[in-house]
């Protein structure tokens, strides 16, 4: 078993796969409010991302086990899927946010809850600290205790920052 295969088998995305595709670069850079990145590379019986998407950007599933496919023309970066996905596998990254900084819209279900203006540590897929970020907004779209935290952090980590650590 190769190292990347064994990493993947333990829950770390190592490359693009069906259900875990990056947005096309040109569209992504230009898109106000950002585009969704779904990291759901396994066929499991689950479809709330598609059924909750208000614009149909996450295409309807033919089979509930389908992995998500995205129509980036339709995605508005609203981050409803970020709040709804039971696997916390949806993220939105807005590259139009600033010159050097992107806005990361990340799912968050831990304590303590950060507040706007807080400095947090931005984490990669194996929990490694990548950068410091600033909390720009704390939203609870579905009022169900899954928060979507908007964090501004360096753009260079657009393909890596997927979680935050508050405090410590």
């Amino acid at each position: 078993m190769s190292e990347s295969e064994s990493l993947f088998n333990s829950g770390i995305l190592t490359d693009e796969r069906p259900g875990a595709i990056r947005p096309p670069c040109d569209k992504w850079k230009a898109k106000k409010s950002g585009l969704v990145i779904v990291e759901c590379p396994q066929r499991i019986p689950c479809n709330p991302c598609a059924t909750s998407c208000p614009t149909g950007a996450i295409l309807p599933f033919e089979d509930i086990n389908d992995t998500p496919v995205i129509d980036y023309e339709k995605c508005t970066g609203c981050a409803i899927c970020v709040a709804v996905c039971p696997g916390l596998a949806c993220f939105v990254v807005d590259l139009s946010f600033g010159k050097d900084k992107a806005l990361y819209k990340l799912p968050y279900e831990m304590l303590p809850l950060p507040s706007k203006g807080d400095s947090v540590t931005c984490l990669g897929r194996s929990g490694e600290a990548l950068a410091k970020g600033t909390v720009e907004a704390v939203i609870e779209p579905k009022r169900d205790k899954t928060y979507v935290i908007h964090v501004s952090a360096p753009k260079e980590f657009a393909n890596d920052i997927r979680a935050i650590k508050v405090g410590g």
């Binding site: 078993m1 333990s10 990291e39 396994q42 596998a89 984490l123 897929r125 997927r162 979680a163």
Partner: peptide, 26 residues
């Protein structure tokens, strides 16, 4: 710790704890 060479649960559940820094030792 997991005896098998891959996680048995849903991949996304593993990714959730991996990104918070928990090692999963296959």
């Amino acid at each position: 710790v997991e005896a098998m060479p891959r996680i048995g649960g849903y991949w996304v559940h593993a990714a959730k704890i991996r990104r918070l820094g928990v090692p999963i030792l296959l």
